[in-house]
Amino acid sequence: MHPTPPNDLSFEQRAAGAFVGALVGDALGLGPHWYYNLEEQVRDYGEWIDDYTDPQPERYHAGSKAGDSSQQGILMLLMAHSLIDCDGYDEADFCRRLDEELFPNLDGTPVSGPGGYTSQSIRDAWNARVRDGRSWGDVAGRADNTEALERVLPLAIRYARQPRRMAKAVVSNTALTQSGDIVQSMTVAFCAVLAQLLQGRRLDADISSTLMRQVKAGDLPFHTIVRDDLQPPQPGDIEASLDGVFASPDALLSPGYMACAAHDPGVTIEPASKVSIVYGMPCAIYHQLPAAYYLAARFEQDFESAVLHAINGGGQNMTRAMLTGALVGASVGIDKIPERFINRLNRRDEILELAQRISGGG
């Protein structure tokens, strides 16, 4: 049995839960990040990781402390500050913050900068912008990671009730550092799922049908010719599409299938942390999103279990936990995130203040 999410939570409680939940997941992953050999992870951190940990010397994020944010968390906070200060998404302001607050602390190499590691897409952008002097709009690389998705989570929260505006802002911001349609479409799809959960919907088998209705209404920028519930088109049907749409809506269909797997007693992934093996440990967005959807559907009212299974799966567990934390945080609200996780965040006061303000004015 899977308990139904409470309907008495306010949008603000869910928004704060998603925001804090993502940053909790990020900080939980800082220590045991990128162990692709689970025996090595167990050797360094024990059979089950259940709290924030220091990174090991000579591994990723070495020198950071338990409860710190990675550079991905820092980018998410930078986006939140920009949204709040500008009372909405202002791309020029966000790019200025990258130029003034992040890029001066980087050198274009992986093991550098705030958080102790800089992702490929940000390195590509830094090299194009700083080394080559190219303008914003001409610096995006082709990395297939989730870097942009992690930083646009505040956009999904801010504009959860305005899907067309949300999709436009997410596509535009993602395109600053990542140019591929697959990355952009999957980023928009995840944000659309998060938006539904923020409004009290469950992550279940029917969520993809809800998203497809938004496509038909012109609110999400995907091309489709099928009728409702993926029935074939009939003579005279008009294609649902927008200028500049993504070629297909498949990124919107995946969440429903992952939820089916999580709720189907005939599908067994035990322990749930092994979802990382089923869908893949690497960093690419097409490995990360299915695992996050599965864990968020399976543990939709159990934030702690969701993020800890994400962490203990190894590989790119930081992103897996960050995305899972956002989804389940939206389902349960901030009051159901264990206090020990919140209180040990090293930027706790700043994070909680932003969490209370991030949903306003959208």
Rank of each mutant, 00 (worst) to 15 (best):
S121A: 15
G67A: 08
L83K: 07
V111L: 10
L176V: 05
Q178N: 11
D124E: 14
S179G: 13
L98V: 02
S70P: 06
D90Q: 04
Q72W: 12
I74C: 09
G115W: 01
T118S: 13
S70I: 00
Y52P: 05
P57I: 09
P114I: 03
Y45K: 12
S135N: 12
R164V: 02
F94N: 03
T174K: 01
A62D: 15
L78A: 14
G116A: 06
F94T: 04
D124R: 01
D54C: 01
V170T: 03
I49C: 09
L176E: 04
Q72E: 14
L106N: 10
R151C: 03
G63H: 05
I122K: 00
I49N: 02
A148P: 03
R164C: 09
L78H: 06
L78P: 01
N145V: 03
P55W: 04
G137L: 04
A169P: 04
R151Q: 11
L83V: 06
Y60L: 13
Q71E: 15
I157C: 09
P163M: 11
L153Y: 03
S119W: 10
D54E: 11
P110K: 09
N173H: 11
P57D: 09
R165N: 12
M166Y: 10
A128G: 15
E147Q: 12
R131M: 11
L83A: 07
I157M: 09
Q72P: 00
C86H: 11
Q71T: 06
V130E: 09
L176W: 04
R134Y: 13
V130P: 02
A62N: 12
L106Y: 01
G115Y: 03
V111D: 11
S119R: 00
G141C: 06
R129G: 03
N127C: 14
Q120V: 11
G67E: 05
Q162N: 11
K168D: 15
L106G: 05
S119V: 07
A128F: 07
F103P: 00
R96T: 10
Y45M: 10
Y52W: 09
P104V: 08
A169G: 03
A66D: 03
D51Q: 14
R96I: 00
G133S: 12
Q162D: 15
D138T: 11
W48P: 02
E101Q: 14
G133P: 11
Y159P: 03
R96D: 15
G115R: 01
G73D: 05
T174E: 07
L176N: 05
V139Q: 01
C95E: 14
A160M: 01
E58N: 14
S135G: 08
A66Y: 07
S135A: 15
Q72K: 10
Q162A: 14
G73V: 01
A167E: 05
A92T: 13
D54L: 05
T146R: 00
R97V: 08
N173L: 10
V130L: 08
C95N: 14
D144T: 13
